[in-house]
């Protein structure tokens, strides 16, 4: 305990930390993960890439990309995916950070809250989609019954079929299921911030906002970046929940990239076009996540 305190106090001092030298040793640590990923992902990636430039006659060409980029439905789906991801990730962050701070603090029964706030995460996303669809069911849905019994609405709401309500219902369910991940990862991050820093800040007369701003946030920075990066990628790939809840409907209003790729591949048998769409999706994601990569590799 004392050892940590002393070291941690030193950490905030001006002395710049030494970095271990031998890169070869570093590569040894990294190797198992990298080799495994190369082994299992290079072949599928090349297959996809090749399919995406294979034309009906067997020649190679980029026509599928041309079709893709000129299809208004593709761009509509890109916009919808972006809206879905931005809304989900920001709500996850807001609720996750709030919940993590709250249960790490001095509230009563925080052990209980810690378990409660985790619960939605143990429900598989497909199952979460089905359960919410059941709650919002147009005939037997309990939420409408509750709202009507409480005289909050006088007509059942069309949660899953109203063109502007359906995307919101989807986000409602996705936030429910997804915020615990951010909470848990931030809660773990909070545990790693040395208690002394808070004590030192308090001694300096810092209020709770200042402590949050100058101790908590910087201490969480790396973990926060990781949580955001992973959550963003994860929400772009989100498939089961959307497929189970709305199947992309009404019409195509809740269609996202992952459900579109699935449809094109497994229902319309357009393997090449679906591959082109997947490659486009990867490129888009790559562009979005480059800043995250830079941030995570930044030196303090």
């Amino acid at each position: 305990m004392h050892g940590v305190s002393r070291a941690a106090t030193g950490w905030i001092g001006p002395r710049r930390a030494l970095r271990l030298r031998e890169p070869a040793v570093g590569y040894l640590f990294v190797a198992p993960a990298v080799v495994l990923l190369i082994a299992v992902l290079v072949y599928p990636a090349l297959t996809t890439l090749r399919l995406s430039v294979t034309l009906p006659g067997g020649q190679l060409g980029v026509q599928h990309y041309g079709q893709l980029l000129s299809d208004p439905l593709f761009w509509q789906v890109v916009r919808q995916t972006a809206a879905f991801v931005v809304a989900s990730v920001s709500a996850h962050l807001l609720l996750g950070l709030g919940a993590a701070l709250a249960v790490a603090g001095t509230v009563p029964a925080r052990g209980l809250f810690r378990v409660v706030a985790l619960l939605p995460w143990v429900v598989p996303d497909v199952v979460a989609g089905i359960v919410w669809k059941w709650i919002l069911n147009p005939l037997y849905g309990v939420l409408n019954d509750l709202l009507m019994a409480g005289r909050l609405v006088d007509q059942p709401l069309e949660w899953l079929t109203h063109p502007s309500l359906a995307p919101l219902s989807l986000i409602l369910a996705n936030v429910w299921r997804g915020f615990p991940f951010v909470m848990v990862i931030l809660l773990a991050g909070l545990q790693s911030i040395p208690q002394d820093l808070y004590e030192a800040a308090s001694l300096d007369g810092a209020g709770s906002w200042a402590r949050f701003r100058f101790v908590t946030l910087p201490g969480l920075r790396k973990v926060l970046v990781v949580a955001l990066a992973l959550d963003t990628i994860w929400e772009v790939r989100r498939f089961g929940l959307v497929q189970a809840m709305t199947g992309g409907g009404p019409g195509t209003l809740t269609e996202v990239l992952s459900t579109q790729v699935f449809k094109q591949y497994f229902q319309f048998y357009r393997f090449e076009y679906a591959s082109a769409m997947a490659v486009a999706m990867t490129v888009l994601l790559l562009a979005v996540s480059l800043p995250y990569v830079r941030m995570i590799m930044q030196e303090e």
Partner: peptide, 28 residues
């Protein structure tokens, strides 16, 4: 027809759009 699932999907999209009021039926 190989394209039948996709053709019918276009129809189902229109049916849903018209029923939910996302588009007038003629437009859908």
């Amino acid at each position: 027809l190989k394209e039948w699932p996709e053709i019918f999907d276009a129809f189902a999209t229109a049916l849903q759009e018209a029923i939910t009021g996302a588009k007038p039926w003629e437009r859908a």
